[in-house]
Structures are given as C-alpha cells and as structure tokens.
C-alpha cells in the first residue's frame, strides 16, 4: 500500500466524519409522537364523522349510496321512513342504522364523494386503536358526536 493511498484514505475518512458531525450539529429530526403531535395535511382522511344541520337534524337521508360506493363493504346502512311529526332528517327517510367497520375501511374517501348531502365526511381523528372488535365497529351514535381531535394542521 502506497503512502499516497494512505493520504487519500485519510481524506475520505475526514470527509465521512464531517458528514456525521454536520448531522450531529443539525440536531435530531425525531418527533416524540405521543407527547408531540404530528402535523397532518388539511385533506388528511381519518375516521368518518356524520354531520348534522344547524337546526339539529341529521344530514343523512338513508340513500345508501355510501354503502354502494364502499369498495370493501365496510359501511352498513339501514334506512327507515321519517315520522313527519318528529323528523330525524330533512328528507323522506333517515338512517336507522349507520355503521362503519374500521377493520375493513381503507380510508379511500369514496363514501364522502358519493354522499349527495355531505352527511359523511372523513375527519382528522386518526388515533383509532381499540381493545376489541366492537370498539372498531363505529355506530351512528358514536359517529354523530362532534369531535375536535388534537391535531396540528400542516401549513402547505
């Protein structure tokens, strides 16, 4: 091995050590996730939410288009006729049962697109772990509860 090889090698090692030193000085990129929230994009698709009108009526009219649009069959809707005295929704019918199985859902957002009255939207709550299968079968009552998930929206 020639001495010039040794010098060349020393230069290369010095370069690689400079790279790591720059990384050291730049500081960590890690986000301490459960303590520090991760910024998400505004159009991030997480768990479904069912919406109401301002007067308290449910938007969902039980048309079952979301169920038809769902590629994995995660949504199950059973419609019923509205009682004219005490309507649940402004239309003729309402959703008696509106369930989404989050173990099947792929969060594609097709239900959101299919919905003619913007009743179902994919919100920002993405911390969806559950202790049982029932925990992941979200029913209408749970989906109707207004949520304000603790997320930071990323500026674009």
């Amino acid at each position: 091995m020639a001495v010039s090889d040794g010098i060349k090698g020393a230069v290369e090692i010095a370069k690689s050590m400079a790279v790591t030193l720059r990384a050291l000085l730049a500081g960590p990129l890690t986000v301490q996730y459960p303590e520090q929230p991760i910024a998400i994009y505004p159009r991030f698709r997480a768990r479904h939410e069912l919406r109401r009108y301002g007067n308290g009526l449910e938007r969902c009219i039980g048309c079952m288009l979301c169920e038809a649009a769902c590629p994995t069959g995660a949504i199950h809707v059973e419609a019923a006729e509205n009682d004219p005295e005490h309507p649940v929704s402004p239309g003729e019918r309402y959703a008696k049962v509106w369930e989404v199985n989050l173990m099947r859902c792929i969060f594609c957002g097709d239900c959101e697109t299919a919905c003619p009255v913007e009743a179902v939207v994919l919100g920002h709550e993405y911390e969806l772990a559950g202790y049982s299968r029932d925990d992941l079968l979200w029913t209408k009552e749970r989906l109707l509860e207004p949520t304000r998930p603790n997320v930071i929206i990323r500026t674009e």
Binding site: T20, A23, L24, A26, G27, P28, L29, T30
Partner: peptide, 9 residues
C-alpha cells in the same frame, strides 16, 4: 451520541 449522529434522539 450515536443517536444524535443519526439525527435521532
């Protein structure tokens, strides 16, 4: 230190 060198905590 190895963590910091790899930009971890």
């Amino acid at each position: 230190l190895i963590g910091r060198f790899q930009q971890r905590i």
